[in-house]
Amino acid sequence: MLQVEHLCKSFGGVAATRDVSLAFPAGSLTAIIGPNGAGKTTFFNLISGHLRPDSGRVLFEGRDLVGLSSLEIARRGMARAFQVASLFPTLTVREAMTAAVAAHQRRSWSLLRRFPLEGSRARAGELLELLGLAGKAGVVSSSLSHGDQKLLDIGLALAMEPKVLLLDEPTAGMGPDERWRMIEKVHQLWQAKRLTMIFIEHDMDIVFKYAQVVQVLKYGAVLAQGRPEEIRRNQDVIDAYLGTDHHLALAGEA
């Protein structure tokens, strides 16, 4: 589905992404982890068209995306929800979702009408049900809780009917209970839609419970990749990121 080959990007002589090659099979759920400055968000920016790599390829269904705009990449089926939710703050939840659906359907002109096209409204309603936001459809987007704003932002990305969905720290800024509710909803969405989903996450309990595959970056390069149980016991990853407490916890399990 998505394959990255020898991706490189430097800023002012500092390598932010160094010869990164990763593969994301269709329908997979992958976590990207690593210490601050590892290049995780830069990697997302490169594959989604917000930055252009210095070299390398980003193959999506066999076609190279390098050089395409982020809008064109989105139209080809790669959507992204950001760490800070990007909403229509003055619109209600229903209006925001309907606007996103209409824009994807190339019906942006319908937003100027008093009554949006029925197909757009129906699709927006389906997405709100899927997200668990149907009961808040009449609430102004900016009045939602932090967690619900993040869910709505994911919904706006889903309105584009993507094949690949990028989630940049979906649980950032949440308390423990809200974090687990959020990632459970993300997992339910993945199960329901069977998207190729890639998420950046710092909470290792979440990563090891939900991810099928974990990719570890350090200083812009791939440090390790594998199934969660392999990454948990990888000494290089423990030394670079997981730390002594994690190592002691594993020893206690033995």
Rank of each mutant, 00 (worst) to 15 (best):
E178L: 11
W109I: 03
M204E: 01
R121C: 01
G132R: 06
H146A: 09
S143V: 01
D153W: 11
R227N: 10
Y219C: 05
Q188A: 15
F24G: 05
A16D: 03
R232L: 01
D236N: 07
G243L: 08
G13L: 14
L152Q: 04
M182W: 09
L87H: 05
R106H: 14
L130Y: 02
N234C: 05
Q149Y: 06
L112R: 13
F60E: 02
K163R: 14
R57N: 05
T90G: 03
F11R: 00
A99V: 13
A85D: 05
Q105K: 01
G49L: 00
I183G: 13
L158I: 05
D177A: 15
R80K: 15
P162M: 11
G138P: 10
A249Y: 12
L167N: 08
L144V: 05
A172W: 09
P176K: 06
V186F: 09
L117C: 12
H202N: 04
W180S: 08
M1K: 07
L156A: 07
F60H: 05
E229A: 09
H6R: 14
R227S: 13
I200Y: 08
E253P: 08
G34I: 05
A79T: 04
H146R: 06
A134D: 12
M174I: 13
F199D: 05
A221C: 08
